[in-house]
Design a protein around this nucleic acid. Structure first.
Lengths: 345, 345
DNA sequence: CGCTTTTATGCAACCGTTTGCATAATTTAA
DNA sequence: TTAAATTATGCAAACGGTTGCATAAAAGCG
């Protein structure tokens, strides 16, 4: 059909006066080939401008050289999600370096009882799967085990936590880091404006928050822990609300930059000086974080590494029949900016 | 090698008591098959839980069912770039619906005189290419023509503008829209804070700006047109600078949200009321735009559609031997917010 | 120096589909 | 009623690699 009359391995073999198997062995540098024939073959390949047809190779080898990446069908902001994007970049880089392509798929839809992910696997389009924890439903994971199909979860999953491989940001450590930074700067009454309490990352951050306060010998005031949406409006309202308390906090940890944005605005309106009278710290380092007024101290999460790790674990799994499961946590770090600089150092 | 002992077309044929060719014809619903055998075959496929092996299909058909997407090797922010991401989402969606995968590749590196893009093509890993205009260098495009390989450029290119297919945001119309909106709101002296003057999109926006002013019978004050980096600092400095003029502008169009951010901060410090004393409008609608103080009026560019268009043009090209080249412009629209609401309507 | 071991290469089957051509079965035309 | 046209299906050769097995040549050994 689509011919373009291309050079094949046979042409190379003929030209070099050897069998196709020998050429194949040179391409894959397998077994022992004498230096002499090797050079002859490489020369022939160059002369004919030969490139191995990857379709034929994949077919013969029975692997697609592709890894599937499930995206959240319900979140049509997935692609404007910085968290997601940077990890995709990490995945992409590692995959590329190992000769794998990325195949993005919508996790949701089901057709005649077969999900699109399942179809991808059964049609042999992918050799492994990376999926965000929100997509790691029991049913799908069971299916993957059944098919003995290699996969890695992005973010700590709710189910099969021990039986499967996953990579996550060390949110507990991040929560500790946030509190320790604020304490070290001189803040004493630290509130926590959390996102969705059902999300595991929220729970872990809170865990770190509690641990760090305990280690510092400070008590946890449950009224200082509040859950809300990750919007500026929520941050704005929450700050105004919490300052009605007889003893309001002197610092706030926000689970999101956008929320912190609202907190800063509210502080401005209330005439509260940041960082003198209120420290503000947020998880994640969005591009806007350095441009807020004052610039925002953040817990930086390295989602690029997250992606890198996920991909390299997956590729290892694809290679070896049985691999021990692996759970990896990526450490966070503080980027200190003006919003928590209590002593004006 | 990697067996997993899967059901093949032969098993289905045997089960249904027909030849493999007949099964194949049912899979591809080609030529005429009697309803009777068709049903028999479909039944057999269901019973055996058969899924066609896409590796074998791709090999037999000689197409990879994949489209390459070149990313800018020099821009390691590519993946945090909202513009880019939304268009990728659009490309992805269309590709998926047409049975194509996306294969992302780094445009830059060259090895033994062969770029990675070229390698992808020669190894038959992709059937078509989408590349951003910054990556559409003369050398590469010539190569693509030589190989008669289908491609679409994302953004108006500098070279081969007429010979190749491309899709872009209608930046000229966007520039007009911005000016018209401001005029309609009652602003009279409109400045333009542009990005890189060498970028074609900047030139087009400026063209629209001039055209709209001319249509409205307003003269263009060249001192109102300034180029700078797309950072808050640049916007901040530029506004302070321009207000040293004897007759400063009463509105500013920024080529980027981040720049507008700096302009708003400078206005705040200078005691300039937005929108009463200064209208501020920006290209692009970042998530922060609705959370600035006051919320920012923007020219919204639909990069999702941009991606969709690019992908569907490419897929058409892949299908038909020769297709007339196509240049498509995606219209922009105004999202009016408080920052240009001069009359407090 | 003959025999075993090692090294280098060729032969041919195989991977699972697709498809041109041949043929059998059925319908149409005259 | 028979030849021609149409419809439905099968046969087998591709597609371009990879790889187990066989074998020839070279090296090592006693």
């Amino acid at each position: 059909m689509k011919s373009k009359s291309n050079v094949t391995i046979k042409d190379v073999a003929k030209r070099a006066g050897v069998a196709t198997s020998t050429v194949s062995r040179v391409i894959n540098n397998k077994s022992l080939i004498s230096e002499e024939t090797k050079e002859k073959i490489i020369e022939a390949m160059r002369e004919l401008n030969y490139f191995p047809n990857s379709l034929a190779r994949n077919f013969a080898n029975g692997n697609a050289c592709a890894i599937g990446l499930v995206i959240d069908a319900n979140d049509n902001n997935t692609f404007s999600n910085v968290f997601f994007n940077k990890s995709v970049f990490g995945i992409e880089t590692v995959a590329q370096n190992n000769g794998y392509n990325i195949l993005i798929t919508n996790g949701g839809e089901e057709k005649n009882g077969v999900t699109s992910v399942e179809k991808l696997i059964l049609e042999r389009k992918i050799d492994g799967l990376i999926l965000p924890s929100v997509m790691a439903k029991k049913k799908l994971i069971k299916k993957l085990f059944e098919l003995d199909f290699p996969f890695v979860i992005l973010g700590e999953p709710e189910n099969f936590k021990l039986e499967s491989s996953w990579v996550d940001i060390n949110n507990t450590q991040g929560g500790e880091l946030a509190v320790n930074h604020l304490i070290q700067k001189g803040y004493k009454r630290i509130a926590f404006f959390s996102g969705n309490p059902k999300a595991i990352f929220s729970q872990n951050r809170l865990k770190g928050y509690r641990q760090a306060l305990a280690s510092a010998g400070l008590s946890v005031d449950e009224k200082y822990i509040v859950y809300c949406e990750e919007t500026p409006a929520a941050g704005y309202n929450l700050l105004k609300e919490i300052f009605k308390m007889p003893q309001p906090p002197d610092a706030v940890i926000c689970s999101d930059n956008i929320m912190a944005f609202g907190v800063l605005r509210a502080a401005g309106e209330m005439g509260l000086l940041v960082p003198k009278e209120l420290g503000v710290l947020s998880f994640d380092n969005y591009p806007i974080a350095e441009y807020t007024n004052p610039p925002l101290t953040v817990v930086d999460v390295d989602t690029y590494s997250l992606g890198e790790q996920a991909a390299s674990i997956l590729i290892k799994k694809i290679g070896h029949e049985k691999e021990v499961n692996q759970q990896t946590l990526i450490s966070t770090s503080i980027i200190a900016r003006e919003s928590t600089n209590l002593k004006g150092e």
